[in-house]
């Protein structure tokens, strides 16, 4: 993932919001749905593993609609859930989304109401990338963001429910290798996040700090927050000083 930069305001016709733009956004998202589905299955199986019903898994996906944070929260789910832990997990994992909305400012600053705030709800890694590409190619139709978002949101929710049903059918015991799928999904995402040698020191710092804090505070998830903050502050300060 590269550092998002403010795109220049496109010159020319004004920003529009049409049903046709929504349709084109949904069509552009279709090829990505096949890639999203296995991840949804993993989240659904993990949800079933902590005892959630299909409806609960579906509600979680529909309300939160952010897969990585759902998976992190589910791997630390308790009964009843620790509200502080899962909320903080959602916030920290999704902090990257805060940088995505501003990149779409040439579109979003021209709309108001649900077209703006509903469009922001639809900002996910993939849908955001599609909309940025469309915008940079001269697209003027903000409905594109909503159309792609609706396609992804509905199929995401559905795929996690299917995952729950698969898990309920297989009924893997705790510690079963099927649950390794959650960790495997993070390993996959990690391989895509390596941007080059500049990541070496921040990732090494994150490794050391997270292992250390995990030893010091067992049974909590502070090691994730501590490792992420230590690594990213190291990298950020180094880049700015340079």
């Amino acid at each position: 993932m590269t550092t998002p930069v403010e795109a220049p305001l496109p010159a020319g016709p004004v920003i529009i919001y049409t049903r046709d733009g929504m349709r084109r956004g949904a069509l552009a998202a279709l090829p990505l749905l096949a890639g999203l589905a296995p991840f949804g299955l993993v989240v659904g199986i993990t949800g079933q593993g902590v005892g959630m019903s299909p409806l609960e898994v579906g509600l979680m996906s529909a309300i939160v609609y952010a897969g990585a944070s759902q998976l992190v929260a589910l791997t630390m789910w308790t009964h009843p859930p620790d509200l502080v832990t899962v909320t903080l997990a959602a916030f920290v994992v999704n902090l990257r989304l805060a940088l995505m909305g501003p990149v779409l400012a040439p579109w979003l600053s021209q709309v108001t109401g649900w077209r703006l705030w509903g469009g922001l709800f639809m900002v996910s890694d993939q849908n955001w990338a599609l909309s940025v590409r469309e915008m940079n190619n001269g697209g003027r139709d903000v409905g594109y963001l909503m159309g792609g978002g609706i396609a992804m949101w509905s199929s995401w929710t559905a795929s996690t429910v299917v995952g729950q049903l698969v898990g309920a059918f297989v009924r893997p015991a705790p510690g079963h290798p099927l649950f390794f799928a959650a960790l495997a999904a993070f390993v996959c995402m990690l391989t895509g996040m390596w941007r080059g040698r500049g990541d070496l020191v921040p990732w090494a710092v994150a490794t050391c700090v997270s292992i250390g804090v995990a030893q010091l505070l067992p049974g909590t998830f502070w090691y994730i927050v501590a490792g992420a903050l230590a690594g990213s502050i190291t990298g950020g300060l180094r880049d700015v000083r340079r």
Binding site: M1, T2, T3, P4, V92, V93, L95, R96, A98, L99, M189, L190, M193, W194, R195, D199, P202, W203, V205, A206, I224, G227, A228, A230, G231, S232, I233, T234, G235, G236, L237, D239, V240
Partner: peptide, 10 residues
């Protein structure tokens, strides 16, 4: 710059 490192280090 700091926020750009968050996904990977997290």
């Amino acid at each position: 710059a700091i926020m750009s490192y968050i996904p990977g280090t997290l």
